[in-house]
């Protein structure tokens, strides 16, 4: 009986040591899979917004993701007049209005193609559609394009840095 008590104690003592070790190694394993510091540090892109032509969709790159940049034409601006959801997504630089968004379908991350004639985006993966402001026209995407964190510096746009305009969009639920 006394021996069994000792064995029981040894078993519990080993269990305690093993549990500490298991938790420690799980932490190490989790951290080993985290994005590396070099990956995180490369997360900023600066765009010169004066070079874009009206109505031409240009794809830039930020954190390995495509960024759609569309300088809105007057026709587009007239079309979306009164549409508060669309207007809230415009980024104003000087007198120009831009749609700047992460060019990945919010469904599962395919890149929708811009259809110049229709002036909208169609995703080939699951048939989702977005308008020129990045709002959903056809499901499955659950929400419009996400807008990357940005900061306006003169006529430059820094992606990856949080500026007041982006913070306002986030607070108002315009983007995630």
């Amino acid at each position: 009986m006394e021996n069994n008590n000792r064995r029981g104690f040894m078993g519990k003592a080993f269990g305690a040591v093993a549990a500490v070790g298991a938790v420690g190694s799980l932490v190490a394993m989790k951290k080993t899979w985290d994005p590396l510091p070099s990956v995180k540090a490369a997360g900023f892109t600066t765009l010169d917004m004066s070079i874009y032509a009206e109505g031409v969709m240009v794809t830039e790159k930020w954190r390995g993701k495509p960024i759609f940049v569309l300088k809105k034409s007057e026709r587009l601006m007239a079309q979306e007049k009164g549409n508060a959801a669309a207007e809230a997504r415009n980024i104003k630089i000087g007198n120009d209005n831009f749609m700047v968004a992460i060019g990945l379908c919010t469904h599962l991350g395919c890149i929708p193609a811009f259809r110049k004639d229709e002036g909208n985006f169609l995703c080939a993966c699951h048939g989702g559609m977005f308008d020129a402001s990045g709002l959903v026209l056809k499901v499955p995407p659950p929400r419009g394009f996400d807008i990357p964190p940005f900061k306006i510096e003169g006529n430059k746009l820094v992606l990856g840095e949080v500026g007041p305009e982006w913070q306002a969009m986030k607070d108002n639920g315009v983007t995630l």
Binding site: D34, P35, G64
Partner: peptide, 19 residues
């Protein structure tokens, strides 16, 4: 749920890359 942290953890990057 927008668990993007989980997606980035699985990838080890913002997009599929070396990690």
């Amino acid at each position: 749920l927008h668990a993007n942290f989980l997606v980035e953890w699985i990838r080890g990057d913002y997009v599929p890359a070396q990690a």
